[in-house]
């Protein structure tokens, strides 16, 4: 048997190189931050895109990486939103950033507790449990009107300035910068997570839990960990919405929100972090257009899109995101390169 000698340096470069920043990625974020100055009149919708992108990023962590199909991710979104709104309303924590962190931690705690139910059983039981958890939370919020305002939503929330400096202005300028910065910071964190051995182990669990445990991975512990983290992300996304709107409502827990979120993520593509962000941009502008056309029948278009997306094939439809995928994952699988030509600048 002829053995090819490999250089450790080169092999290391190939593995570690996957996590390097691609120029397109840099461009992506430069463009994202440029919107602050380029489109000041669009800041309200851009704010919505920012928290929705964070919410979808959160779902991508558990669905795209760990393979957990959730139909109730809105549970953590709503929980984070109410936490942030209540903290502000009762002036428990006046500084929005600290309140945001607390809301994220609270949602994480909820994620940790409910993760034990999600671990059990098949995709079907997971769908049922996630759906059930969101329903239960909505019902709890509904019945405890003295705290949450019930069906009217939590009103009378006044937000204090961010870091004591920047007020939430009525045009949403500061709110947008705030959301974008939070999205970026949490994106950086997620990027580190998915490129780490821990993140890789999640992908291995999605691919084959049997083998994952056969190489010594504690599958349940990893799933609990990522579910808890993702719940925190969703909670922060909800808190951003509550803070920028100074309002929280039962609709934040709705099944439709969880289902829409799935759509957002699959539009952009799962499993490479940018899918949720791209999906959020497309979804929001589409929503803006279609909802104005026929506000009442918006669900019909969502449904049609979902059906078409599946029938035609998600890969084929989201094929247009391939260049974006490559910027997160530098290797083009389809192009097999002969050895020796691959040492360029890694």
């Amino acid at each position: 048997m002829l053995l090819a000698r490999l250089s450790q340096e080169e092999v290391t470069g190939r593995l570690v190189g996957r996590a390097h920043w691609h120029p397109l990625e840099v461009l992506f974020w430069v463009a994202a931050f440029a919107t602050i100055w380029l489109f000041p009149s669009k800041h309200l919708i851009l704010t919505e895109i920012a928290w929705l992108a964070l919410f979808a990023l959160s779902l991508d962590l558990i669905l795209g990486y760990a393979g957990i199909v959730s139909l109730g991710h809105a549970a953590f979104f709503g929980f984070g939103a109410y936490t942030a709104a209540l903290l502000a309303k009762h002036e428990i924590i006046n500084e929005p950033v600290i309140a945001l962190v607390v809301a994220g931690l609270a949602a994480s705690a909820l994620g940790f507790v409910t993760s034990f139910l999600v671990l059990r059983g098949t995709d079907l039981t997971r769908i049922m449990v996630t759906l059930g958890v969101a329903f239960v939370l909505r019902e709890i919020a509904n019945q405890n009107g003295w705290l949450t305002g019930g069906a009217d939503g939590l009103q009378g929330v006044t937000m204090k300035p961010i870091l004591g400096q920047f007020r939430f202005d009525m045009f949403g300028h500061n709110g947008y910068v705030y959301c974008l910065v939070v999205l970026f910071v949490l994106f950086l964190l997620a990027r580190r997570i998915v490129n780490s051995p821990f993140g890789l182990s999640l992908q291995s669990i999605r691919n084959n839990p049997l083998r994952a445990s056969a190489i010594g991975i504690n599958v349940n512990a990893r799933l609990i960990a990522i579910y808890t983290i993702a719940a925190g992300y969703a909670g922060i996304a909800g808190a951003l919405l509550a803070q920028t709107q100074a309002f929280a409502s039962l609709a934040y827990f709705d099944f439709e929100r969880s289902a829409d979120l799935l759509l957002v993520l699959v539009i952009g593509g799962t499993g490479y972090l940018y899918g949720g962000i791209i999906g959020a941009v497309v979804f929001k502008f589409m929503h803006d257009y279609l909802a104005v056309l026929t506000p009442q029948y918006w669900p019909f278009w969502i449904g049609l899109l979902l059906v078409v997306l599946v029938m035609v094939g998600r890969e084929r439809i989201t094929g247009w995101t391939a260049p974006f995928r490559r910027m997160a994952d530098r290797l083009d699988w389809r192009r097999l390169r002969p050895r020796g030509e691959t040492t360029e600048g890694r």
Binding site: L15, R192, P197, F198, G199, L200, S201, S204, I217
Partner: peptide
């Protein structure tokens, strides 16, 4: 294969919980 083996060896050497450093570093 590179990722698979990188993961398996990382796990065995106790880096499986590492969520900060890049796999293979």
């Amino acid at each position: 294969p590179l990722q698979t083996l990188g993961l398996a060896v990382s796990e065995r050497l106790g880096y499986g919980h590492d969520w900060w450093r890049v796999t293979g570093s």
